[in-house]
């Protein structure tokens, strides 16, 4: 009896820790991952094509809503003035240990300016990326920390910095970035076509 209780408790403990471990794993995209970091030939070709392809980012015509913007627009959010670049480009994740290794990534330049009166950093918690299917997709800031907006660091008042938004490419279509700090919500939408 005592042994079976111990066995059940052990299973419960293992289950709790497995849930923790799985819950802390990043979400895989619908294409799955590339095994132990090896890129298969077909994927290599896809990356080459993605890198070579001319990227045309066409601003979409949006309904005139004050909180909706597109490429080339400038708006203020959370004490920052953000000027979204007019052209998007492709790059790819180069990290053999990442499930995104070799996957095409969209890069959109952003000019970030601190228009508040205090030194502050842009919060990565206020951003969400949405892919061509309208579902939330992963940002790739971890792999592009040198110039991504999420790791832009602190800016003194009136200081500005050229940064970029990086996110996973999941097909041609309308992509979106939502900025939400619980008091203001700004949405940026744009068309990405390879």
């Amino acid at each position: 009896m005592k042994k079976s209780i111990k066995a059940m408790a052990l299973i419960a403990v293992i289950a709790v820790f497995v849930v923790f471990a799985l819950g802390s794993g990043s979400k895989t995209d619908e294409n799955g991952q590339t095994g132990s970091g090896e890129i298969v030939e077909a994927e290599k070709e896809a990356i080459k094509e993605a890198m070579a392809a001319e990227v045309t980012a066409e601003p979409t015509t949006l309904a005139p809503q004050p909180t909706s913007f597109t490429l080339g627009d400038t708006f203020t959010f959370d004490g920052f003035e953000l000027t979204i670049g007019t052209t998007a480009s492709f790059t790819s994740v180069q990290n053999q240990f990442s499930e995104l290794n070799g996957k095409p990534v969209v890069r959109i330049p952003v000019k970030l300016k601190n228009v508040s009166s205090e030194t502050k950093g842009f919060s990565m918690f206020n951003m969400k990326y949405f892919g061509s299917q309208g579902t939330e997709i992963s940002g790739c800031s971890t792999y592009f920390q040198e110039d991504c907006i999420e790791w832009s660091g602190k800016l003194r008042p009136n200081a500005s910095k050229d940064v970029a938004m990086y996110f996973v490419y999941d097909g041609d279509g309308i992509y979106g970035v939502d900025f939400d700090d619980f008091s203001n919500k700004v949405s940026v939408e744009f068309k990405i076509k390879k």
């Binding site: 052990l10 293992i14 820790f17 497995v18 471990a21 799985l22 802390s24 794993g25 990043s26 979400k27 895989t28 799955g32 991952q33 095994g35 132990s36 970091g37 240990f97 990442s98 499930e99």
Partner: peptide
Amino acid sequence: VSFVFSLILELLQMSGIVSGTFDF
């Protein structure tokens, strides 16, 4: 027990069965 389970989870991550990034 804990190391075996850690190892199993990492191997499952490597094979793509569970989410997460395999790292030696």
